[in-house]
């Protein structure tokens, strides 16, 4: 029921577009996480390589 109510009340909002702030947060978060993941995994894989 709640979903039905909100659906009716918000369908008129239209499709929002990504704002500059949205892009900045999304790209910033992606770069931060990807850099951390690549950095740490390169070290982990490097250690495994040496152990072999």
């Amino acid at each position: 029921m709640m979903i039905a109510f909100i659906l009716q009340s918000t369908d008129s909002l239209g499709h929002p577009e990504m704002t500059a702030g949205g892009w900045a947060f999304a790209i910033g978060a992606w770069i931060f996480i990807l850099s951390l993941t690549i950095f740490t995994f390169s070290k982990v894989l490097g250690k495994d390589g040496k152990n072999r």
Partner: peptide, 16 residues
């Protein structure tokens, strides 16, 4: 390092 790698992989799966 391994703790950080674990956290970053979790964040990759969650945020990205």
């Amino acid at each position: 390092l391994t703790g950080l790698a674990t956290s970053s992989m979790n964040e990759f799966c969650e945020v990205i």
